[in-house]
Amino acid sequence: MAIEYLMEAILLAARDWGATDRMVTLFSREHGIITAMAYDVRKPKNKLGGGLQPFTHFNLLMTSGKGMDIIKQCEIQTSFKEIREDLTRLAYANFIAELAIGLWPERQAEPTAYDMLLAILALLAVRNPRIAALIGAWQLMVLAGFQPEFEYCTHCGRKLEWPAAFSFAEGGGTCLACSLPDAPVFDRLTKDFLAKLLAIDLKQPGEFTVHTRLITATESLLYGFVRYQLDRPLKSLDFINKIK
Rank of each mutant, 00 (worst) to 15 (best):
192 D>W: 02
125 A>L: 05
175 C>Y: 09
160 L>F: 06
46 N>V: 04
2 A>P: 15
105 P>V: 04
162 W>N: 08
73 Q>P: 00
26 L>G: 02
135 I>T: 12
194 L>Q: 05
13 A>I: 00
172 G>V: 06
197 L>E: 05
237 L>H: 04
117 L>G: 13
104 W>F: 15
122 A>F: 01
70 I>F: 01
30 E>V: 01
133 A>Y: 04
75 E>Q: 12
80 F>T: 02
39 Y>C: 04
54 P>Q: 08
127 R>T: 07
194 L>D: 05
206 G>A: 09
85 E>M: 09
143 L>S: 08
232 R>G: 08
58 F>H: 01
225 F>Y: 15
34 I>M: 10
209 T>P: 00
145 G>A: 07
236 S>Q: 11
139 Q>R: 11
210 V>C: 13
244 K>D: 14
94 N>E: 14
171 G>P: 01
103 L>K: 11
145 G>E: 11
108 Q>I: 06
77 Q>D: 10
72 K>C: 02
116 M>P: 00
134 L>R: 05
17 W>H: 12
148 P>N: 09
98 E>I: 05
32 G>S: 10
213 R>M: 11
50 G>F: 08
14 A>F: 00
87 L>E: 13
166 F>W: 12
17 W>Q: 10
169 A>I: 11
198 L>K: 07
23 M>H: 03
29 R>S: 02
84 R>P: 11
181 P>R: 06
13 A>V: 00
88 T>H: 05
196 K>H: 14
145 G>Y: 01
11 L>P: 00
155 H>N: 10
33 I>T: 07
76 I>R: 05
218 T>Y: 04
121 L>D: 03
161 E>W: 01
29 R>W: 02
134 L>M: 06
155 H>P: 00
19 A>H: 12
99 L>A: 12
44 P>W: 09
226 V>C: 10
207 E>G: 04
199 A>M: 06
217 A>F: 01
233 P>F: 08
112 T>R: 10
235 K>M: 12
20 T>D: 10
123 L>G: 09
84 R>E: 07
206 G>K: 03
174 T>F: 06
158 R>W: 01
235 K>Q: 15
151 E>D: 14
90 L>G: 02
184 P>W: 11
87 L>N: 05
68 M>R: 13
188 R>Q: 15
6 L>I: 00
235 K>H: 14
147 Q>Y: 03
